[in-house]
Amino acid sequence: MITVENVNKSFGKLRALQDISGNFPKGTVTVVCGPSGSGKSTLIRTLNRLEEIDSGRITIDGRDIYEPNINLDQFRMSLGFVFQQFNLFPHLSVLDNITLAPRRLKGIARDEAEQMASDLLRRVKLSGKEHEYPESLSGGQAQRVAIVRCLAMQPKIMLFDEPTSALDPEMISEVLDVMGDLASEGMTMVCVTHEMGFARSVANSIWFLEDGQKHGEFPVDDFFQGTTDPRISLFLSHLNRE
């Protein structure tokens, strides 16, 4: 569904992405991992053009997303993007955070949008939070609202950029559970995360990045058991020590 071909991206002298290629097939969950500064966040941000690439090609459903006459806003509506810092809109209630895009971008009527929002909130166990404001939510609740905000646009693909890194440990699982449910419903997902437990139980394949280079793509079981790559062993042992 998403194809990445020879993508390069530099920030000044830093080569953040070097010749990255690969596929994110439809209906699968791919976890992108690697040490910090490896370029994994940059990679996921190029997938909806929050970051522009310097060279290479990214296609989604066969369509080059860097072609000049693409309607970028239209294209982004079909992708959900979940941020590390949630980025909920503090001036809007939970309900308005969720319904703003469906109403303003898709022209869905308020009643219908709010009904859908309530349904989605129930699915992530946040019923009754409709009229609260982001400032009164815990981190785990805020991130679940952020996920619902994306789902309300009925995206084809969900991108997660370290969705649990800003959370207190006890809240991580409530977000991962939601992501796991989403995966089991067949959503195509790309997740940048350090949560190896999640990767093990939910992901179909794992990309390992270091220093802007892709050091392989592994089926889940291979990654955790069979790899001989010393970099990956080192990375996993660091994670385990934490």
Partner: peptide, 21 residues
């Protein structure tokens, strides 16, 4: 915070809509 405009951008809001909403 820059995340605010970025989140709006990622959801598909145009620059004008991001500014106004």
């Amino acid at each position: 915070p820059y995340g605010q405009t970025e989140a709006a951008k990622a959801m598909g809001f145009s620059r004008t809509k991001t500014m106004i909403l």
